[in-house]
Design a protein around this nucleic acid. Structure first.
Length: 525
DNA sequence: TGTTAGGTTGCGTGC
DNA sequence: GGCACGCAACCTAAC
């Protein structure tokens, strides 16, 4: 039976918000007869991407918050979380729900691009119209590249120039004030396809005493499209204090914006990487990753502050150190990624990445893409790598950062510089791809474009080449934390050490080491 | 085709 | 404590 009004699936992915969503707006502008906000619980991310407990928690925080916001707009609505791969379940939904339109925000990562290309073909086959809108960055990365002569955006100067040609970023659009009903949602007639759980890159995070049950039923254990719990994922050990969701994101943004001096004078290089509780930067990056905060809303609210301060003749910081600069850096990396494509996250086949004969090179698959494993060419390098990962190098500054990363899923940008420099050109000569994989696993704000870009930057393989600028694990943290409070917090075995030795405890006399309760250098070593 | 200046965020020294 | 300077295996846009 032909339908006069559109029947729309809105496919949420990394755009977990209602405010300033061009794609959501486009879906609602269709004036749908029925509207299905869905999330597909994709086995690719569950098993084949590296995602630790803290990021799973952040994601499900965002999903729960979004779902409750949808319900507030229409009590019949929620985020319909469907536990099957999008590639297999979407065609079944198109048919079952007589869908006319599929709408989603563009995702620029390699897997997502392939997935979306496939899904668009399936939609075409089913006679479903697809609407895709860019909403993740200040500028469409492809447009930035076009205005950079078709080349990857490799510096802030290039990015600023291309951005200037494109004009101001779009103004944010308000959230919807109402939502149409969903139609019939029962999926029990669907032939549920459960994924193959092997190989499971996240096996280390699964608690073997719990059996995972995330894919047992397509609508969840209570057949209500519930968001999977960490228990259902078989994952335990989320330890981060940083929580997700649009509500928290908007509240955090308000707090930042309400501090005119902080917002107007923000200069990244002057923020302390040793500050914790509270941190010295905004901690909004995970919200940008999951889309619980619009990048354009942040940009324009900061712009308002700049304007007001200018009128009051107060100083403002400027790009690249300013808050606007931080947002533009993100666009620079997205632009570079867009021009390079899938090899952006690796060295081989990546035209912007310089070859260095690092230890622990990646194994590649038949397409010359990372195979998920690496070659141990050198036992010492492997040992350095493992000690780096788990925060037992013996350099307190490095160990404190890596422990904070594992525990909280976030470390300051300059802390990331310090540990990345240390693992690669600064000390261990381990391949930057190893470090990037650890960040992928542990960061709650992991973003392929920014992560790969920053690792190439710090390893001097792209974007940056002044190899002689090395972060000292002793001198660098001293600048902002001479007493070593950060180290004392995250490496508590050193908490009694005198500040004279806090960054190089091996220099403390053995008698003092005994007195302070931690023997760094035993006799005979 | 050559030269030059500049690049978000270094360190150690000396004043 | 703050600043200037040398270090010196770079890269590349702009002229």
């Amino acid at each position: 039976m032909p339908h006069s009004k559109p029947r729309v699936i809105y496919w949420f992915r990394t755009d977990l918000r209602l405010h300033d969503s061009p794609a959501l707006q486009a879906a609602l502008d269709l004036d749908p007869e029925v509207f299905y906000p869905i999330w597909t619980w994709d086995p690719h991310y569950v098993y084949r991407a590296r995602v630790g407990a803290n990021r799973w928690q952040f994601l499900t925080d965002c999903q729960r918050d979004l779902s409750s916001s949808l319900t507030k707009l229409n009590p019949k609505q929620k985020l319909h979380l469907i536990r099957e791969a999008p590639q297999t379940v979407l065609p079944k939904l198109f048919k079952l729900w007589s869908i006319t339109h599929l709408v989603f925000e563009k995702d620029t990562d390699a897997y997502a691009r392939d997935r979306d290309r496939g899904v668009m073909k399936l939609a075409e086959d089913a006679g479903v119209e697809v609407i895709v809108k860019m909403g993740r960055t200040l500028y469409d990365p492809n447009e930035l590249v076009k205005h950079n002569g078709g080349r990857p955006t490799m510096s802030m100067a290039q990015t600023q120039k291309a951005a200037a040609a494109l004009g101001d970023p779009a103004k944010p659009i308000p959230p919807p004030t109402s939502l149409p009903d969903p139609g019939d949602t029962d999926l029990s007639s669907i032939d549920h396809q459960r994924p193959d759980p092997t190989p499971d890159l996240n096996a280390a995070h699964r608690d073997l005493s719990h059996k995972e049950s995330q894919y047992t039923s397509i609508m969840g254990p209570n057949k209500d499209f519930s968001i999977p719990t960490l228990e259902e994922m078989g994952i335990s050990g989320a330890t981060t204090p940083h929580r997700g969701g649009e509500t928290i994101a908007l509240r955090t943004l308000d707090t930042i914006i309400s501090n005119s001096d902080y917002t107007g004078l923000f200069e990244k290089p002057k923020t302390a990487p040793t500050a914790f509780s509270p941190q010295s930067t905004t901690l909004l990056s995970p919200h940008h990753h999951f889309g619980s905060l619009s990048i354009r809303l942040f940009y324009w609210r900061v712009q308002e502050i700049y304007q007001k301060r200018k009128q009051a003749q107060k100083p403002n910081s400027s790009i690249p150190e300013s808050l606007h600069g931080q947002l533009l850096f993100r666009d620079m990396y997205f632009g570079a990624q867009a021009a390079v494509g899938a090899p952006f996250a690796q060295e081989v086949g990546n035209p912007i990445c310089k070859f260095v004969d690092w230890h622990l090179r990646s194994k590649l698959n038949e397409h010359n893409l990372l195979a998920g494993d690496y070659i141990v060419d050198n036992e010492k390098a492997e040992s350095y790598f493992r000690r780096w990962k788990f925060g037992v190098t013996g350099f307190p500054w490095i160990d404190a950062l890596m422990r904070q990363l594992r525990l909280e899923g976030w470390i300051h940008h300059l802390g990331r510089h310090a540990v990345a420099c240390f693992l690669t050109r600064g000390g261990c000569y381990v391949h930057w791809e190893r470090g990037a994989e650890v960040f992928e696993e542990w960061l709650i704000d992991h973003e392929v474009a920014c992560n790969s870009g920053n690792w190439m930057w710090l390893s001097c393989t792209a974007f940056f080449s002044q190899f002689f600028r090395v972060y000292s694990p002793v001198a660098f943290p001293k600048k902002s934390d001479p007493a070593g409070e950060f180290v004392r917090h995250f490496v508590p075995e050193l908490k009694n050490f005198d500040k004279k030795y806090i960054y190089e405890p091996w220099k403390a006399p053995i008698v003092d080491q005994r007195k302070w309760g931690c023997l760094v250098k035993g006799r005979g070593v």
